[in-house]
């Protein structure tokens, strides 16, 4: 009896250690989240005031806000979504509806997955090569294109996945009353998959609103309140990058405040997207 009892204790204690480690790992993960958000809230609220939303970025040592980068970020994000969403939706539609069993679809899906996780700085270099270098100057347009290249794969992926979840009986019902295929897709399938596709677009917005790397050498930055898309334009992430690395305390404070704004916008978007997708599943 004795040896088997020791074996049993050894197994039990090993199990206990592992269970403790896994609980510890979870606490560690949650702890990081709390730590990051806590510091962000503390430092961000320090500098948060109405001025942040109404005044331009200041020169070092002066008072100011983040109005121009906020406007710039909103403009570029809107444009990127306006360019990227239709393209992504159409491509996803082809993959789920027309070319379900085609070779092209599996190739596009593979490539799309690669683009989905490609380093965003490489997307920035690509946009620099195709837009900034030929035009001869940095511009808001180039920034929007760089962000759109990031939007496309997200939307392609969710559109395809969501359309595939639409039951084929719906399609057959539409076909049986003689609806042409294009109409079946736009009037039946899109409607059934709407919540999912909107979720995808929200996730894409969340993803690009924090992106910095692709904007560094496309949209660059602009000290002045320019809303001209044909010129360099300032965006929130790039301003945070510049201000945080500067030696000026008031710039650093603004960087924290900007970081707070971005993080909460992004987290609200991703939580909203999640809520939307679960409510869609239940109905």
């Amino acid at each position: 009896m004795a040896p088997s009892r020791t074996l049993y204790t050894a197994r039990r204690s090993r199990n206990l250690v592992m269970v403790a480690l896994s609980i510890g790992a979870t606490l560690l993960g949650l702890g990081w989240l709390v730590l990051i958000l806590g510091v962000l809230l503390y430092e961000g609220f320090n500098g948060l005031s109405l001025k942040v939303f109404t005044e331009m970025t200041p020169p070092p040592g002066a008072d100011g806000g983040l109005l121009n980068p906020i406007v710039g970020s909103l403009m570029l994000t809107t444009l990127a979504v306006a360019i990227g969403t239709p393209l992504g939706m159409l491509a996803g539609t082809y993959m789920a509806e027309y070319g379900r069993n085609e070779r092209l679809t599996s190739v596009v899906r593979f490539i799309n997955d690669i683009l989905l996780s490609a380093p965003s700085i490489v997307i920035g270099l690509f946009t620099y090569e195709i837009m900034v270098a030929p035009m001869g100057h940095f511009s808001g347009w180039a920034g929007a294109v760089a962000l759109a290249v990031i939007v496309v794969p997200v939307v392609v992926r969710t559109t395809e996945d969501m359309l595939r979840l639409v039951p084929d009986t719906l399609r057959e019902a539409a076909a049986s009353i003689g609806l042409p295929r294009s109409m079946m897709i736009t009037r039946i399938a899109y409607r059934a998959a709407k919540a999912g596709i909107v979720t995808g677009v929200l996730l894409a917005i969340a993803r690009i609103s924090g992106e910095t790397a692709p904007l560094l050498f496309t949209a660059l930055n602009n000290q002045f309140g320019s809303a001209n898309l044909n010129a360099p334009i300032s965006t929130l992430p790039v301003v945070i990058f510049q201000f945080a690395l500067s030696p000026y305390a008031d710039w650093q404070r603004l960087a924290w405040t900007g970081a707070l704004i971005i993080t909460f916008a992004v987290l609200a978007l991703s939580i909203g997207a999640r809520a939307l997708s679960t409510s869609g599943k239940q109905s």
Partner: peptide, 10 residues
């Protein structure tokens, strides 16, 4: 979901 620049500044 937290943007990478936030990790940077933190």
């Amino acid at each position: 979901g937290i943007p990478s620049i936030i990790y940077g500044i933190w």
